[in-house]
Amino acid sequence: MSTPITILADILKYTIAAATPLLFASIGGLFSQLAGMLNIALEGLMGLGAFFGMAAAGASGSLVVGAMAGVAAAVVGSWLMGIITIKFKANLFITGLAVNLLAVGVTAVLSQSWFHTKAVVAFDIPRVMLAFPAFLGRIPFIGPVLFSQNILSASAWLWVIAAAFIIRNTRHGVRIRATGMNEEAVNALGYRPDRYHMAALIWSGVGSGLGGFALGVSISAFVPNITAGRGWIALVAMYLGRGKPLWIAASCLLFALAESLSNYVQGFSAIPPLLVLALPYAVTLVSLVAAAAGKKD
């Protein structure tokens, strides 16, 4: 019995769920952008977060442990990227590409070694911890859209608010931004720009790790290429937001809506599913171009 209202509710519900990994990763990426260390490895770091997060959550039966492991893995990845870029004066984009490749290799080899397959690994993850109180879910329309989400979706919005606060109102955030704007000035004030470059990369690792883990939780599994370009879409969301967390969040919602629509349309339409799968990338590309073209005028 799907009425237009329930269909709309379904699409919006999935939009919020699909925005979760994007919010985590793109806001993480924002730190790196502000510090002038644009992290193009969000994709790979999300993959690390998904694999190690799910493996730990599956082994411990705890979402918290999973989230911590996912974050730890992605932070190690971004730290490695930082060491090689900062200490060894390497090209940031190339180390970013390298981390993306590294993540593919490490997750495949460890998946084979630990779970004896490099295909789908399903995990039995506690659902109880994810639920909101049941009575909230019974509110018409709003209930199914907002309160049938898992706790990670709510955390993603807390993460946006927390990041906005850190960036605007803390000394740490101000120094990260200052490092991105004028490295020499920061140096002259007696702070080491390198430290804030590294801190910003680590923050992007934290966000990507959580985003990857959220992605794994949403399907209770790890599959190869689980991120499927979401790290890059998150990067575009970050661009479009022009440094403002709320605008980044709005971009994430837009791309998540595209993903949700493409999921919905795939089910029953004359358009071939494989073509529909291209929709989120197409929407992302068009937004990127539109924003760039609009900027010049």
């Binding site: 090689i84 060894f88 004066k89 390497a90 090209n91 190339i94 180390t95 590409l97 390298a98 981390v99 490749l101 590294l102 593919v104 290799g105 490490v106 495949a108 080899v109």
Partner: peptide, 13 residues
Amino acid sequence: SILQAAAMFFITA
């Protein structure tokens, strides 16, 4: 992929 990543790291350092 791991080996290529390593080669990339070393070559760009």
